[in-house]
Design a protein around this nucleic acid. Structure first.
Length: 595
DNA sequence: GCCGTTTTCGGCCCGACTGTTTTCAGTCG
């Protein structure tokens, strides 16, 4: 039972409780426990028989500890099973529909919308329809009309929501969301009277995916009473597919790619409060507001104000709000309620790693294999970025598809790399390297005699990634035992939103890598970002060396480093935690020594 | 269901928008 499963079970229990009309604070405690499981770097299930340690986790009390134990023993939570027996599992999908909350589900449930239709002669495959499908057919059959709060518009909203759900269930990668945001921002800035547009929400916090886009807009056209022109202009953005809502201060719509965008117009005097509020995260804001209450203030998206006479204490900038609460300003990446507020109160926030700290990139390909540029072109592009070193790490022979290097070509390639390195003396170092493939049995596909010539040996899995978990784990553990391996490449193989990560026992791998001094790569490409912020925190806790690289196949790809950096920041990593902040000689010296 | 510098009981974050409810409930972030 991993934390992810536990998180799902706990939050499903919370959803079901809410539908059943349970006490909202009881629901909240299940959600808090789910959050705790999601964020924890320790496998909570492994502590099931150690209640004392479980109870140390904030949000876990006696009942939750018992629930966790039950999940280990039975694979589920008794309360969840009980509720699922009453409702059906598919009912949880309904919560994903816009406008559909627990109360409405309960209403529809009581009205019998989800009872199996009588007299069906459906084949079993067709009979197994989801609650969403049942809802759709209930709408079509007109069975919602006449129910309380179910007017024409409400029903139409549900119908649209179902279409939306079927078209794109899910989140958007941060780079895609960023690109969409940029288009809307450019459009908005063209309006006279709009001065500033700032993305808030998960995009500002640098999460790897975004569910929707929050854009905060300010300027003379956003002052109270003056907003109608700007609202109409916003609603006329040519990329809009459907308007969801249009009010005095807010327009919500779907873009053609189904990304939801919320544009909010704000008076400049509340800009800081709004930015703070809409940046979140929700958990961070809840804790912050509790803190405000304790000192006699109330915090909303409009201002931090005194409770007694409602006078405004701070509102124009985030800094002033945090300062009024005795806190240092916090980078958005830290605002996940993982202790940042306490640390900010002690004025001990770490100096997070920044893109400008990065002095080299040691994973990239050239047209010797599947890259698109030469060694020299890659080196020039890296130099133009201000890097002090790179490593050329083309593929090895097992990846025939990429024209991977065999022994002979690999040795030849090294000579070319060394030539370029000499040519560029005094400008940038170019290290010879290789991305060697880990075979199905954990062996590498090039002999040690070749690897011994390389400064940077990255071992990565490229094939057979569907092997069972134990086998995949064993395979990587064997590979990093090879004394020439200095970096474990894209360790989880995750391709965000396209493929599941490898099935792996990542903690065991990280632990062993730390023992051996093998660095673990954080692949910075947004479609990879293969170590989540939680994985990165674990890697740091275990004392792993971390190398952040772009795996560039093209000179233009170097810029992807920014996504990797944001993920590192979300994991509270400082320059000292990441090898690439070192200079060229120090970087090589920090890697596992050659035998 | 959790938690404690007022509390082992009695609290637990806040406001806007929507649709339909002529005064407010539900959803959302």
């Amino acid at each position: 039972m991993d934390n992810l499963t536990l998180t799902r079970l706990l939050s499903e229990t919370a959803d079901l409780l809410e539908i059943s009309g349970a006490d909202s604070f009881r629901v909240r405690s299940y959600r808090r426990a789910a959050d705790a499981a999601e964020q924890s770097t320790v496998d909570l299930a492994s502590l099931a028989n150690d209640p004392a340690r479980l109870l140390e986790v904030p949000g876990i009390g006696k009942s939750m500890a018992a629930n966790i134990k039950a999940t280990v023993d039975t694979g589920s939570i008794p309360l969840r099973d009980e509720l699922l027996a009453k409702y059906s599992a598919g009912i949880l999908d309904l919560l994903k529909l816009p406008g559909m909350g627990p109360k409405t589900i309960a209403l529809l449930w009581d009205a019998g919308v989800f009872l199996a239709p009588a007299n069906t002669t459906l084949e079993p495959a067709e009979a197994a329809i989801s609650s969403i499908d049942q809802l759709a057919s209930a709408i079509d059959a007109g069975r919602l009309a006449g129910l309380p709060r179910m007017g024409e518009k409400q029903i139409e909203k549900l119908r649209r929501g179902i279409d939306e759900f079927r078209k794109s269930a899910g989140r958007f990668r941060i780079d895609e969301a960023e690109e969409s945001a940029e288009r809307v921002i450019q459009y908005l800035l063209a309006f006279p009277g709009i001065e500033r547009v700032t993305p808030a929400g998960s995009l500002r916090r640098g999460r790897e995916t975004c569910g929707d886009l929050d854009l905060l807009v300010t300027g003379p056209a956003c002052e109270p009473g003056q907003t109608s022109a700007a609202i109409e202009y916003t609603a006329a953005f040519p990329g809009i597919r459907d308007i969801i809502a249009k009010g005095e201060n807010k327009v919500s719509f779907y873009l053609a790619n189904s990304l939801q965008v919320d544009v909010r117009l704000l008076p400049s005097r509340s800009y800081g409060a709004a930015l703070q509020y809409f940046t979140g995260s929700k958990a961070h804001n809840v804790t912050l507001r509790q803190r405000a209450l304790k000192v006699g203030y109330t915090l909303s998206e409009w201002a931090l104000a005194r409770l007694d006479d409602e006078s405004v204490v701070a509102s124009e900038t985030e800094e002033s709000i945090y300062a009024a609460l005795g806190l240092d300003w916090m980078p958005p990446e830290l605002r996940e309620n993982l202790g940042e507020i306490d640390v900010a109160a002690q004025h001990k926030l770490p100096r997070l790693i920044e893109q400008s700290d990065i002095r080299g990139d040691v994973h990239m390909h050239t047209y010797a294999t599947d890259g698109r540029n030469s060694i020299r072109e890659m080196a020039d592009a890296a130099l133009a970025r201000g890097y002090q070193y790179i490593a050329i790490t083309d593929h090895s022979k097992n990846l025939a598809m990429t024209n991977g290097l065999n022994e002979e070509r690999a040795l030849e390639h090294i000579q070319h790399i060394r030539e370029i390195d000499r040519e560029m003396t005094g400008q940038i170092r170019v290290f010879p390297g290789i991305e060697v493939d880990i075979l199905g049995d954990g062996e590498l596909d090039l002999p040690d005699s070749v690897l011994a010539q390389m400064d940077v040996v990255i071992a990565s899995i490229h094939t057979l990634f569907n092997q069972p978990r134990e086998q995949m784990t064993e395979r990587i553990l064997r590979a990093i035992e090879n004394p020439y391996v200095r970096i474990l490449g894209h360790p989880t193989g995750r391709l965000l939103l396209r493929r599941e990560p490898f099935a792996l026992d990542l903690p065991s791998i990280l632990r062993r890598a730390a023992e051996l001094g093998v660095a673990v790569e954080h692949n910075a490409a947004p479609e990879r970002l293969d170590l989540s912020d939680r994985d990165l925190r674990l890697a740091k806790e275990l004392g792993c060396k971390i190398s952040v690289n772009t795996d560039s196949h093209d000179t233009r790809h170097f810029d992807k480093i920014r996504y990797g950096i944001r993920q590192l920041r979300r994991a509270w990593l400082t320059p000292g935690d990441v090898l690439n902040t070192l200079g060229p000689d120090e970087f090589l010296a920090a890697l596992r020594p050659h035998p």
